[in-house]
Design a protein around this nucleic acid. Structure first.
Lengths: 266, 266
DNA sequence: TACTCTTATCGCGATCTGGTGTTATGTTAC
DNA sequence: GTAACATAACACCAGATCGCGATAAGAGTA
């Protein structure tokens, strides 16, 4: 495989998979021409352009005449398509653990994270339930389910995250107060949670203010990293769920700084 | 043709067309057996049953052992799903007409109507564009399009309408002001627009306050009827678009009461 | 039970759609 | 102006889906 993305690219459609591989390729090489990609992936130049258009739409690469260049790593990592591929099993385990905290009748807020999406799949038999989210895939799924009151948090659509954000979204969040919040971030240090994009930070901060019990879902890939914006101290979260593959010393480090850490078993 | 339904069954799929014809046949004869329909329409008994199941689901006929009977006319006529099929071509024509009012760069608000959905399909080549809507199918479609700023109006999800409503939605609408509003209602008298549900009325009223130019889209089936709640006087709309099949005297009646009526050509 | 009507399941063929390459037509840089 | 690159338009292929009927099993009625 040309790709060196760590996640399983198995269950994606052929073009989507190739696009993920192209994305990885571009990130690795920093800047490549369309013809490079034609040779590397054995498809026509037209297809390469189509893939690049899509990746640009998602905000993963920048196109210019003569080739493409990678967006800063930070942006790339917060990209939905990329995130979807990574740490699939871990996210599932974390979701199953999170599920145990939810009782029928509760109100739950979810952010625009793939971890949250995994959690949605487990909602079917915890009804009735009120769920608020700004994440379009989650909204679509929840709309199908019975006995779930769905509260969509509107706002400006971002193709990169497939979710709604900006001021309108933050305002919608402010107007609520849920029992639980499940959210995720792109990076976690022993003391703080981080995220790259200011707009997202804005919404997540609002969410933190609008829930009684705040749960942070972190797969081990997120630890030992930081990102541009400090979202909140870990102590602000009532519970931090990590997966089993998280090194023990990292968990201890989190606990030393006052976080309540729970480990999700696979 | 066996059918004597007034709508054009032309661009419907074959089974949908046959179902409409079967519905007309049943309405005409009052009560028929499955075998009658097998002979009348030249399809297998299995297919007849499938069609009848669908028609029953739509509330058009009643099934019992040995045959089917028509629902009372009133029920039949007020059936949403059924009307959805018949007015299809009209809605398209109206959407095409509405399209001509939109210039690139404008901001447009859409309500949760099938007319609005038809309009969305025509947006692809009027970019850039800012679109605000509370209608989930429209949101899903618009999220795919490039060069469209999508502003989702969140709120409480209603499975019946496949849209978001309630106070949160009304508030989200209040926070905006768009150049254009395209909306539809369930009934239109010469003086007023009507709708059955209070919640929907709430949101539509907010929309009317939050747009500069307000356009009402009405296919001729909506005229000569009323519904529980009076939404707004027709004079509140800057333009009312009707389809070509609207009787001339009805158009005149609208105009006599101060409405600016435009007729969409098929 | 025997008969008729209804429903479930499977498979076949037609249709639709998504993904692709080819060719033709812009566009940009030099 | 020309060469390299980018986009648009068309056609093709494959896989998925749809519509339909045949058969068989189930359910109601006499």
């Amino acid at each position: 495989m040309t790709s060196d993305v760590d996640g399983d690219t198995a269950e994606l459609s052929r073009p989507a998979r190739r696009q993920a591989e192209i994305a990885a390729y571009v990130v690795k090489h920093g800047s490549v021409s369309a013809n490079d990609l034609v040779e590397a992936f054995g498809v026509s130049v037209m297809t390469v352009h189509r893939d690049l258009d899509e990746l640009e739409r998602q905000g993963v690469v920048r196109k210019y005449r003569g080739g493409v260049s990678a967006q800063p790593t930070s942006v790339f990592e917060s990209n939905v398509a990329y995130r979807l591929n990574t740490a699939h099993a871990e996210k599932l385990a974390i979701a199953r653990h999170a599920r145990t905290m939810i009782e029928p009748g509760m109100s739950v807020m979810l952010d625009d994270s793939t971890s949250a999406l995994a959690l949605v799949d487990l909602f079917e038999d915890i009804t009735p339930l009120t769920v608020a989210t700004n994440f379009l895939p989650a909204i679509t799924k929840l709309a199908q389910l019975r006995d779930i009151t769905l509260l969509a948090l509107g706002g400006i659509y971002s193709a990169t995250h497939d979710s709604f954000g900006g001021m309108p979204c933050a305002e919608a969040v402010e107007a609520l107060h849920t029992d639980l919040l499940f959210c995720s971030v792109s990076a976690v240090s022993p003391t703080h949670a981080f995220h790259q994009e200011e707009e997202i930070v804005l919404v997540k901060r609002a969410m933190l203010r609008s829930a009684k019990t705040k749960v942070l879902m972190v797969d081990h890939g997120k630890l030992q990293r930081t990102a541009l914006h400090r979202l909140a101290p870990l102590a602000d979260f009532d519970i931090v769920i990590v997966d089993e593959k998280t090194p023990k010393d990292l968990i201890d480090a989190l606990r030393d700084h006052g976080a309540t850490v729970e480990v999700a078993e696979l």
